[in-house]
Amino acid sequence: MTVTVDDHVTGQGDPAPAGEPRSVHRARWWRLLLRDPAATVAALVLLGVFLASTLGRVLIGDMDTEQNLRAVNTPPLHFENGWQFVLGSDALGRSVLARLIVAGGTTLSVAIPAVLISLVVGGAWGMWAGYHRGWRENVSMRIADIILSFPSLLLAVVVLYIFSPRVANIVLILSIARIPVYLRTARAESAELRSRLFVDAARTFGTKSGAIIVRHVTPVVAPTLLTVATLDFCFVMLSESSLSFLGIGIQAPDVSWGLMVAQGRQYLQSAWWTAVFPGLAIVITTVSATVLAAWFRLATDPAQRWRLALPRGRRGTRSALQEVHQ
């Protein structure tokens, strides 16, 4: 019954005309990605980080905790004691590369769940609030204001004082701190969508509000929310790193990039590489996510997508770097 209405919705937020085969649709996305070299590199870097901290974690075994006291503080690019010291070793003779891989896994295991939880909860809540308007919207917005008007690190500091700083608690506190961002975005979009014709049509057919939100509002709001989520991934990663660096996040013997910087800080004069490389890993990952978010924003916006389809020379190199951070 809602088939025609549905196609209309797809046309709103989705580039593929109705009836176009899915594979063609997917190929188009690949082409758009490959058109933007900065975005392609960013995607490859993120893929590399992900593979290293999943597959790489399996491959290196327990090399990250293995101490080689003859290779203490090996500078980078010295191979006398084996290839694993390509990025040097720390004061206990552990391979910095292996520790980076393990730490990356920890960082991702905090950042990805935190982003997903706040995306799903905040997105659903925001669409619900924006669709219904009235008191539901007002109360939700006030709650978002309250959470946002308080610095996230302060919130984490108080909560992690009282509860133990385990991974689950860090994920929880970071996702609560970021829910308002999605809540606000989703509310604004869905409040605007509810007066559109296709939503009206669905309501005329007697569709329940929950079903309208799932079938008609979500597909249109999703691209925006995903862009916000990609940007927010940086924020969550930086927050986790800061917390771990301050000693109230991930606790030893676990290791995350932030904690590695904190540990390497004591050896700054004798072994600078133990603090420099984990920080570089954070910067490379966050910059990649930012670049990819910028590309994603262009690629999912029908009014802006033409920029990506232009030959490189005419649109310049800045396509992916625009309008980042609001």
């Binding site: 700054l268 984990p278 920080g279 910059v287 800045r318 770097l321 625009q322 980042v324």
Partner: peptide, 29 residues
């Protein structure tokens, strides 16, 4: 779209995704 504009955009984007504790330690180093 001028050169100044591009440099400003690139630098400000990198500045926004920099972990401050690491930046501080690099400054000290």
């Amino acid at each position: 779209n001028s050169v100044a504009d591009r440099i400003a955009s690139l630098l400000s984007m990198t500045a926004g995704s920099m972990p401050d504790f690491w930046f501080a330690i690099m400054g000290v180093l």
